[in-house]
Amino acid sequence: MARTYRVVLRNRDHACLEVGEEETILAGAEARGFRLPVGCRYGGCITCAAKLIDGKVVQPKGTALKRRQVKAGYILLCVARPRQDCTLEVGVESHDALFVNPFAVRGE
């Protein structure tokens, strides 16, 4: 039997989801009736980005997140599967550090 983990959506009234280890966090959230940002559903477009505050997930190699975005704590909920209990900040309000104007910043 597959393990399940507790995934807390900190900025959704600390809602607690039970997400199976083979299930994406997005699927777990949608099954509970949450409507979170989503686009491609294959890890290619970062619309569903969320901040991992605590815990651990696995994602396929080569998602659309840049190194800078991964360092800032972002994961892609459409492909991320839990490996520990997790706490997340979700939705566009978690995207404060996701986007930069490339002409306004020095290269990294």
Partner: peptide, 11 residues
């Protein structure tokens, strides 16, 4: 798509 969908990067 995997390049432009996430946003624009000069790199």
């Amino acid at each position: 798509p995997n390049t432009f969908l996430p946003g624009f990067d000069l790199e």
